[in-house]
Design a protein around this nucleic acid. Sequence first.
DNA 1: ACTATATAGTCAATCAAGTTGACTACATTA
DNA 2: TAATGTAGTCAACTTGATTGACTATATAGT
Lengths: 157, 157
Amino acid sequence: MNHQLFNKFDLTTLLSLSFSASINELHERLSESGFGDFRPVHGFMFKCIIPNGATGVELSEYLGITKQAVSKMVDYLEKNGYVMRQSHPTDKRGKIIVLTERGWLVVKAKEKILSEIEGRWSENIGNERMQMLKEDLSKLISEENEGKLSPFVRLIW
Amino acid sequence: MNHQLFNKFDLTTLLSLSFSASINELHERLSESGFGDFRPVHGFMFKCIIPNGATGVELSEYLGITKQAVSKMVDYLEKNGYVMRQSHPTDKRGKIIVLTERGWLVVKAKEKILSEIEGRWSENIGNERMQMLKEDLSKLISEENEGKLSPFVRLIW
DNA sequence: ACTATATAGTCAATCAAGTTGACTACATTA
DNA sequence: TAATGTAGTCAACTTGATTGACTATATAGT
């Protein structure tokens, strides 16, 4: 294995390529499982919807995009059967977005595939090194975000 | 430091967040240095142009996008003074895209900023751990790509 | 040599996922 | 109760992709 070939890359490039590899495989396999209409952008949103639903404004803050963009994304996901809009229990203006059964199915499928990928990578570099890797990345993220989860980027270097 | 907060995340999420953190800081600082019109998508293309230029088709294969998309991106970069189209020495159909002086300036600025970020992160987790991290990521990428550089993804999980 | 086909690049129309601004309905505060 | 704020949607626009059609030049087969 000539991973020396990649050793000249800066950390940012390595992060980009490893992230891409993971996300590519995930969505290829989701597509094979009948979730071809579920796109990479949707996954991050689901994290905020789980487990108790979320309002549009909550989602827009979590994702760092406008509420209008969220609204359109929810239109798409509702049309394709992944989520539902429910009326808010106390605020008549508000709606709560929750997962449908199909929504939960894609979440389960995602978790299964990602843990398989992570498992395979663990075999490659070893369990201890995988543990270290995750710990170190966690530290870097918490340094950057001063401990709280922050918006992400849709673009790449 | 509560990086335990992030430890529950799967590897893919950790890669996404750390990549975002890095790319966000890079482009904020490039913007402050007068390269606000240089966007994250352009960086990956530059890697292929350096050092000897590249044709449109080469770029489209490298980036995994269509040659039409490349052509439009080159229009933009040419308009903003980062690249030039030169005629191909042997193929009258072809053009070679090369960096202008301003193109080289942004590359230098990028390298400086990224190495500063990497340096700061090294102080955080330690030099040895940083070395391990890069080694492990390199291994994962070379497993996935069977040793050759492959297209990337513009989307996120 | 000549015709077939393949390739490099561009143009035009469309799409996907974001943006800003305007608006309605409901909530909250003074 | 009047003034202001907030949740969500609608419409128009932007950016970075796409597919399909086209021109000019290269290359391969006979």
